[in-house]
Design a protein around this nucleic acid. Structure first.
Lengths: 263, 263
DNA sequence: AGACTGATATCTACAGCGTAGGTCTACGAA
DNA sequence: TTCGTAGACCTACGCTGTAGATATCAGTCT
């Protein structure tokens, strides 16, 4: 039946791992492997071995490997909860951001998936689980009085900030192995001596990176920026304050800036 | 010698492509394949075929495939020029951002490489070409009077914003095939009818995405945010205004916010 | 009871992958 | 002439994703 013993020499995923297969078990096991060894160590055959099944069995639960990876990303993203009923939209966005950061730090190897998989699939074809935070955020902002376009704008700004920040922060994690920070400087030490004087001088600063604080300051900037450009419709009247983001942006382009085409 | 005719049935990279191999030719050809067909279509064997050489010859110019990909990313990033002598640092950062965006849109398939490869390599071991914009930006900001820590902070914020924005914008590109936008809505149309009412209603807004304007507004927010939190040392006195970013962040945490640990 | 049906699991096989290790050739220096 | 070295090539290994056919099961209908 479900033969192929789980290869006790190699580690496996769940208790006896001989039992019935299911999409959930498969995705959970894939996530475990990715968390432990990274994305590129995950192969269909390896996953099947860990589950104690034949590789081809996996294709009953995912049409191909790309879909499996999408499934893993979806699983991780499902941990993100957005409460569209929160009366304080800005606070809710902060909460979402902090939650997202925690999830990403728990599964750092999945982050490349989170940020790049959407590039390969049109929005409407993406796994529904990945669209749910979007819809919930739109609901939150709509309740707060924003129109659809502005809500979408805010969503994009928030997740752009988040993705950018996480890529930064995970980079720092790679840079700082848990060794003595003198050794970190040794790493920088091998840079050509004349060419990177400033970078080399910043070894201790690099080591002192504080991701949580960095994110908070980014959120501060973003949210104050947003609230001064966009304002929700005040529920009774329908007047607006700083309507169009684009025109607002055009106004204060720096005077001496080099010109560059728009599109 | 340099045999193996370039396989005229398959496309190739440069004029006759039989000539001497070199790291530059190899990387240029790899970039061309990636631009045309995407990263996952690039294999050592495929690249060698396009160059009219044996696959193993490539290993003379790159120790392995990962290094080759790093090389491609480095090549692309080399197009980015930062002028550290610009007296208007904010304007120069804007110019860099716009330039980076243009480069990314010219090579959209390389963007995943640009944003994720650094996650796999400690900073000091990265290809030097990818560190050069960092050093130059630090130089720019140091001349403008910022101390090292703040300069680094600004650099991170800028490239975080850029990466986040580009991931957003390239996502929209995937969403908007150049067909009639009614068809785009057809794409959204297949979403479960009760579950995504807001998202489905935003079809036309999604289609109207303007990446350039979006980036400008992001830069506005970022730069005004930065200039109110950080100020350069005014070249004579050494007093500072809004010293610590972290503390500034801590001050205006929203009152009703859900609490969440820092690290 | 027997036959049929659909889901689940397995097996076999293929074309392609990255790359270790060895060899062949050409050329400049000794 | 001999040697060393750089560049290119060849072979082979173990791995990959997955198409296609086959086996095994549970349940339902006759």
């Amino acid at each position: 039946m479900t033969s192929i013993p789980p290869d006790p020499a190699l580690e496996e995923c769940e208790p006896p791992t001989g039992g019935k297969l299911s999409r959930e078990r498969m995705l959970a096991c894939a996530l475990e492997i990715i968390d432990r060894e990274g994305i590129e160590k995950l192969s269909m055959r390896r996953l099947a071995r860990a589950l104690g099944h034949d590789p081809m069995s996996l294709y009953r639960y995912a049409p191909n490997k790309a879909a499996l990876l999408d499934g893993v990303a979806e699983t991780v993203l499902a941990e993100l909860t957005v409460d569209p009923t929160d009366p304080d939209w800005a606070a809710q966005l902060r909460a979402v951001a902090r939650q997202y950061r925690r999830i990403a730090l728990t599964h750092p190897n999945v982050v490349p998936l989170l940020v790049t998989r959407p590039l390969a699939t049109p929005l409407a074809l993406r796994p529904l689980g990945t669209l749910r935070p979007l819809e919930a955020t739109l609901a939150l902002l709509t309740r707060a009085g924003f129109n659809g376009a502005d809500a979408l704008h805010i969503y994009r700004a928030l997740f752009g900030l988040l993705h950018g920040h996480l890529l930064n922060e995970l980079q720092e994690l790679v840079d700082n192995p848990q060794e003595n920070d003198d050794l970190l400087r040794l790493g920088l030490h091998r840079l050509p001596i004349g060419e990177f004087p400033l970078l080399r001088g910043l070894a201790s600063t690099l080591a002192a990176y504080d991701g949580a604080a960095e994110l908070e300051s980014g959120l501060d900037i973003l949210l104050t920026g947003l609230t001064t450009t966009l304002t929700p419709i005040p529920s009774k009247s329908r007047t607006r304050k700083g309507r169009n983001v684009t025109s607002a942006a055009a106004e204060n382009t720096p005077p001496g800036g080099l010109k560059q085409r728009s599109s």
